Amino acid sequence: MKALHFGAGNIGKGFIGNLLRKTGYEVCFVDVNQEMIDRINRRNSYSVELLDENHTVETIFSVSALNSIIQEKRVIEAIVSADIITTSVGVANLSKISKVLAKGLLERIAQNEKKIDVIANENAINASSTLKKEVEKIVSSKELAQINSLVGFPNSAIDRLALSKKGTEGDIALVEPFFEWVINKSEMVNFDLPLISGATYVEDLRPYIERKLYIVNMGHATTAYLAFLLGEPTIQKALRNQNVERIVRSAMVEASQYIIRTYRSDSEKMTEFIEKTLKRFKNSNISDDILRVGRSPIRKLSYEERLVKPARELFKLGLPVENLAASIAAGYLFDSPEDEESITLQGYIRSNGIDKAISHFSSIENVKLKVMIKKYYDKMKNGHIVNC
């Protein structure tokens, strides 16, 4: 069995490619980093380090790599012969791979009628649907009908911290022991392949996507923004502060009410999930840079995103959102000179004030909720995190 995976980064090598190999696939990565491509092809393998107590190192064999820019013909040939196609390139880069993907799928259809699923594993809601829309922009209506008849774009939700470190053979992917890969079975077209080892198949993906976004990602971002205000360099060091842990846990508990009420989730299981997530965040074998976690604050403070949606939805129901409001306030204080969105955000606040910034970036117009956020913004700006 052959798998073609776009993106030889930390998630690609440490998570998706790893599980595909464990399932029995020969994995071919497609990337633009020629140094990385040459390294994989030279060894036909790569190393992954598990961030457990023993820092277990695993070697992943039977892998190869292609350059999508200078080896387009071979990438197309690989699409034709693949049994499954996956991605982890970042949602902003899906448009960049859509052209070669479209060419490859059309060539595949011309040569055989074997169905195939294309799964985009990005940190975004319905990334596979986004990739499909990018393909639709390129092909004709007739070609699209052909693709739709034989190609599925099942959406997925992924969750695994993946970092990297320099080794003698280049970057080594570092991954936490926990992982979750949830695939929407109802959107698949090829059921002749074995289930991917470690993946979960469901009929409705949304509860898993929103649980990750509004609890895991929200809690992670909240920790980063509080850490920034305290001058802590990593998520792990920040959570040693009892006040930070209290606010983060409380914000996650508040946000969990959105999941519980929307999807009728079990409250006890949700509590267990929150504690499990906090344990992941506090893993002492990980050094999780808060500037990396907190980057792109404008996106993370937007209307449908991790910090804002649970707060505004729960506020409308009259449920507690004090800690979520504090999380939003902390996000508006994230001031990293290395982050373009942070520079834009802080410049807007200096020119227009926090009240207009909340309206502009988060589209929050509820006066009472804005007052609550501004209250915590002023407290935190003056260093009073402990009183939140």
Rank of each mutant, 00 (worst) to 15 (best):
K99L: 14
A145E: 15
L195T: 05
I40D: 01
F6I: 10
G231R: 11
L324T: 05
N10W: 01
I116W: 03
K279C: 02
S342Q: 03
W181N: 03
E58A: 01
N190L: 05
F334G: 07
V63H: 09
Y208I: 04
G331K: 11
K22R: 15
F179V: 03
I215R: 08
E187N: 04
K276F: 11
S327M: 07
D159L: 00
E169R: 15
L174W: 06
E143D: 15
K370C: 13
K99G: 08
S62Y: 14
I97L: 14
S156W: 06
E122Y: 07
K2P: 03
N155E: 00
L20A: 09
A357L: 08
R299S: 06
M372L: 15
T344G: 02
E53W: 03
N323A: 08
I259C: 09
E35T: 14
Q71V: 08
D335A: 14
E322F: 02
F179L: 08
I260C: 08
L195R: 13
A78F: 11
E58V: 08
I37D: 08
E72Y: 10
E72L: 10
V253C: 03
Y225M: 08
G318C: 13
A311L: 07
S267K: 15
I37N: 10
A227Q: 11
L230E: 08
S156R: 04
M372H: 09
S186N: 13
F361T: 01
A357N: 05
K269T: 13
T277K: 05
K133S: 15
S250D: 07
R264F: 15
A325F: 05
S128A: 12
E72D: 12
I328L: 07
N10A: 13
F179Y: 15
N67I: 07
K114I: 12
K96N: 15
A255L: 09
G318F: 09
E180N: 06
Y214V: 05
L229H: 06
V100P: 02
A325S: 15
D355W: 10
N54G: 05
N148T: 00
N44W: 11
G198T: 01
S47T: 14
A330R: 05
R292Y: 03
F153I: 00
Q257T: 09
R312A: 05
A199Q: 03
I97C: 06
R261I: 09
F191M: 02
S156T: 09
K316Y: 07
N366L: 05
L226P: 06
P194D: 10
R108N: 14
F15Y: 07
Y46R: 12
M1D: 10
I343S: 07
D288R: 02
F29A: 02
E275S: 13
L19N: 12
L205S: 10
E176H: 09
R39W: 04
M270Y: 08
G152E: 00
D171R: 15
I196Q: 02
A311H: 00
F29V: 12
L4W: 12
H55G: 06
L163H: 11
N148Y: 00
D289I: 04
L333S: 07
L19P: 00
